[in-house]
Design a protein around this nucleic acid. Structure first.
Lengths: 190, 190
DNA sequence: ACCTGAACACCGTTCAAGT
DNA sequence: ACCTGAACACCGTTCAAGT
């Protein structure tokens, strides 16, 4: 009893999981909480901000790989972590992309890998561009993958033969190899 | 006098340029054409399809580099061509991304570079993943760039210091280097 | 064949008024 | 402080009816 920001975000994520992003409307969130739609606006300034809070909640679950591994492994591991978390939420890629574009997100999803690359000796612009590219490849491929899944669920067996799932991982690997080639080389041992 | 598919697409693109993607609604397109909103549905099955037609129109302007240049230069040139065309239309990256996700587009934007890579000796999955990654990096970075521009126009000088414009180009270069490393090497001279 | 008029079932957001 | 009720200004889409 009594609305709260976390409660609203939780309800929104429930709807996201059960019905998809298109069904996350202020009115449906309010309905889920048995409250009038206008009531939400006392806790959250607008829908865009609610979406940003949802995105932050999801991105907050991406763990940074521990153990002092070599940069290449670290980046691969991190990318797959991100991929796994995003795959566990329906329409998450579209959600995160929209929030990223809006600039309202409170979580910088590429802060960790960018820092790692800088520590590994990459110039800041290279680290920024590389992590950005990595994120875009993950999000872009996943948007397609998830929306295709959505369509398939509606019985629309799309014309395209579905992106083979390994393509995402291969795209990730290409970007990682590109950036590794720019790293100062430290002799193999350790 | 008399609606037509091309006329509808042209009107929609005019609105896109003048007011942005959010203002491209069936009702506003109809209003521009001095016609009732329902009339559009005789020429176009739904809004998604209209968006796909707009995207096709834009992507159709991307010229493939001519002259038998080396793969690296070809890919760089193609990427910048794509970038230039997309930058010439407001909100084009968001539009193309949405259409790509919907699977309704009639133009495959990466057909040309994929073919080139295959001819250069790349295995098909590598060529597909690489061109896909290239497209995602371009679209992803541009979505951010264009939406930031949109916000700036509304006087909202965003908190973030704006993505420095060179980051897009650097991301492109990284992906290209990654794929070039996988190409069978032909000795330097021609 | 092609378009109008009007409706249906929604949206996000605002805001007086209540408690 | 927090929520209701009701409105405002929109959406995409459908469809009888006209021409």
């Amino acid at each position: 009893m009594g609305l709260s920001r976390p409660g609203i975000v939780a309800a929104a994520i429930e709807i996201l999981q059960a019905y998809g992003l298109a069904d996350v409307t202020m009115r449906r969130v309010a309905e889920t909480l048995q409250v009038q739609a206008g009531a939400l606006y006392w806790h959250v300034p607008n829908k865009q901000t609610l979406l940003a809070l949802m995105s932050d909640e999801i991105l907050g679950q991406v763990a940074t790989p521990d153990g002092a591994v070599v940069p290449g492994e670290w980046l691969t591991s991190w990318s797959h972590q991100l991929l796994a978390v995003l795959r566990s939420y329906r329409d998450s890629a579209e959600l995160v992309s929209a929030v990223l574009a809006s600039g309202l997100g409170g979580v910088d999803p590429i802060a960790a890998p960018r820092q790692l690359l800088c520590q590994a000796g990459a110039p800041e612009p290279v680290a920024a561009a590389a992590t950005h590219a990595l994120l875009q490849v993950v999000l872009g491929s996943l948007v397609v993958e998830q929306s295709r899944a959505q369509l398939a669920e509606l019985g629309v067996s799309s014309a395209e033969p579905a992106v083979d799932s390994g393509a995402v991982e291969m795209g990730i690997q290409l970007v990682i190899e590109g950036v590794l080639a720019r790293l100062p080389k430290e002799d193999g041992k350790q």
